[in-house]
């Protein structure tokens, strides 16, 4: 009989990814509706000491697989470890972050285990099986909601007949619980027997970016450019503005495709989902795919020459005008305001 809500807690170089903590938080809500437990699954090498952190953030139990094969992410050894955990515990639900790792690992596991997987979910819920004849005796299912069709539609997906019910979940969407060092839980270590085919892929080299490139999902302020900035040099004036605001620059897909800026600054359906305190969209028309990645931002300012641009439909403050004139003036004006406040503090 399958049971419990399992969460894959992702780590890189021994640091737990934020999405894993968010998913533990969401899993506690799902598990409460099922009256079951939250089990965090932690894979890595020399990772045992991180297990307690999963408990502090809400896990009832942590399953740890600590093996040198799991030091750096590779599909085969990770899939073997998850397969072993699933076969040992028979989870009811298994959720993963929709990160590069989760979106590579979870489909491989789903094909091996023969179960369903729903990608990139933005909402999870527990409800009775809609087809049950007697709703009071209906089995409780995981309802997985995700954007489809480039963010134009939302679809709710269920997996009735196979276990675990699996989903990858967008980072930044679910709420983590507050850390509570008094929480208690079990830690169990699982040994995995790796097979020769798990080491078919060899790592020749790991290249890490010298300067850790800014993570736009962490920024409080994003000044974002679209096709309307006119070229790579257009990011210069946005950068100046972002700097005085203590933020970062980001971009729509058009600029990434044109090679004006790196892919890791792209906001939207095929880029990152962001929810900063301020999102300033400059020369971004607001394709639905872009809106999908930023409309949860706290305050949205849009500057665009075209008064019918769809970005204005989601902007809290919409300004029709030339960003190349407005943004540099704005940067200066913000500098002045900030300087005057500094003086007042003294």
């Amino acid at each position: 009989m399958s049971k419990d809500v399992f969460v894959f807690v992702e780590q890189r170089d021994g640091a737990i990814a934020k999405v894993g903590i968010e998913l533990i938080g969401e899993a506690t809500r799902l598990a409460a509706k099922l009256n079951e437990k939250v089990v965090a699954v932690l894979l890595g090498s020399g990772i045992k000491n991180k297990a307690n952190m999963c408990i502090e953030y809400g896990a009832d139990k942590v399953v740890v697989v600590d093996a040198p094969e799991l030091a750096e992410y590779l599909t085969d050894p990770y899939a073997r470890a998850i397969e072993t955990v699933i076969k040992k515990y028979d989870p009811e639900i298994f959720i993963y972050g929709a990160t590069s790792i989760g979106r590579d690992l979870a489909p491989r596991v789903s094909a091996r285990i023969h179960t369903g997987l729903t990608a990139d979910c933005t909402g999870l819920d527990i409800q009775p099986d809609p087809k049950a004849e007697d709703p009071s005796k209906a089995q409780l299912l995981l309802y997985m909601t995700r954007p489809a069709f480039g963010g134009n539609l939302m679809a709710t997906i269920i997996c009735r007949d196979y276990r675990p019910q699996m989903a990858t979940v967008r980072p930044g969407v679910m709420q983590a619980l507050d850390k509570d060092t008094s929480r208690k839980g079990e830690i169990e270590e699982v040994k995995v027997e790796f097979k020769p085919e798990d080491s078919r892929v060899k790592i020749r080299q790991i290249l890490k970016e010298e300067k850790k490139s800014a993570d736009i999902t962490e920024a409080k302020v994003l000044v974002s450019g679209g096709r309307g900035i006119g070229g790579p040099q257009g990011f210069g004036i946005l950068k100046d503005c972002a700097k005085v605001l203590g933020g970062e620059i980001s971009s729509s897909r058009a600029c990434v495709d044109a090679g004006w800026i790196e892919k890791d600054r792209q906001v939207g359906q095929t880029g990152k989902t962001v929810r900063p305190d301020l999102y300033m969209a400059c020369g971004i028309s607001g394709a639905i795919q872009h809106l999908a990645g930023m409309e949860q931002s706290n305050y949205i300012v849009a500057i665009n020459k075209n008064d019918t641009a769809p970005i204005f439909d989601v902007a809290d403050l919409g300004i029709v005008g030339d960003l190349k004139v407005i943004v540099p003036k704005l940067t200066e004006a913000i500098k002045k305001v900030k300087a005057s406040k500094e003086v007042k503090k003294d």
């Binding site: 890189r12 750096e72 590069s100 790592i203």
Partner: peptide, 9 residues
């Protein structure tokens, strides 16, 4: 992926 690149064989 994410913050790094792998060269794999």
């Amino acid at each position: 992926y994410e913050d790094r690149e792998h060269i794999l064989e």
